[in-house]
């Protein structure tokens, strides 16, 4: 850190590349999705319990109902978004190699979008009765 090899002053090292002037939007969205899920968790649990022990046709019938499909879609959007931000924070905390970190953040984005789209597609497919 402050080894003799560095020619930079300590203040220059602390200031580094300067402030990114971002972070508040992620902080806000993390809270926004958290509140959304806190409200949605009860209906989602009810839906999951309703599904217990049903066969595919019965499950499809429940998931095909419009209010239930909308609740689940909202929950999917909120949870995958929340997951994306949360995992990014973990990556930023623990991966310090800059290139590996960028790759991880990118993979995290891909993964979360893929999970979200797959889930949304499944719900839409069931509710449109295809």
């Amino acid at each position: 850190m402050s080894g003799p090899s560095s020619m930079r002053t300590p203040l220059e090292r602390v200031r580094g590349l300067g402030s990114a002037h971002t972070g508040t939007s992620d902080f806000w969205r993390q809270r926004l999705t958290a509140v959304a899920m806190t409200l949605l968790i009860v209906p989602v649990i009810v839906v999951v319990i309703m599904l217990i022990g049903r066969n595919h046709a019965g499950a499809a019938q429940i998931l095909g109902s419009i209010p239930i499909a909308i609740i689940l879609l909202l929950f999917i959007v909120a949870s995958t978004w929340h997951m994306k931000i949360g995992m990014q924070v973990v990556i930023e905390d623990y991966i310090h190699n800059e290139k590996l970190k960028i790759a991880s953040v990118m993979a995290n984005n891909f993964f979360c979008v893929a999970v979200a789209l797959a889930s949304i597609y499944a719900i839409l497919k069931l509710s449109s009765g295809v």
């Binding site: 649990i45 999951v48 319990i49 309703m50 217990i52 022990g53 049903r54």
Partner: peptide, 13 residues
């Protein structure tokens, strides 16, 4: 609690 409810509701099926 969730698991008790799940068993109470789902147990019949």
């Amino acid at each position: 609690l969730v698991w008790i409810i799940a068993y109470a509701v789902g147990g019949g099926r």
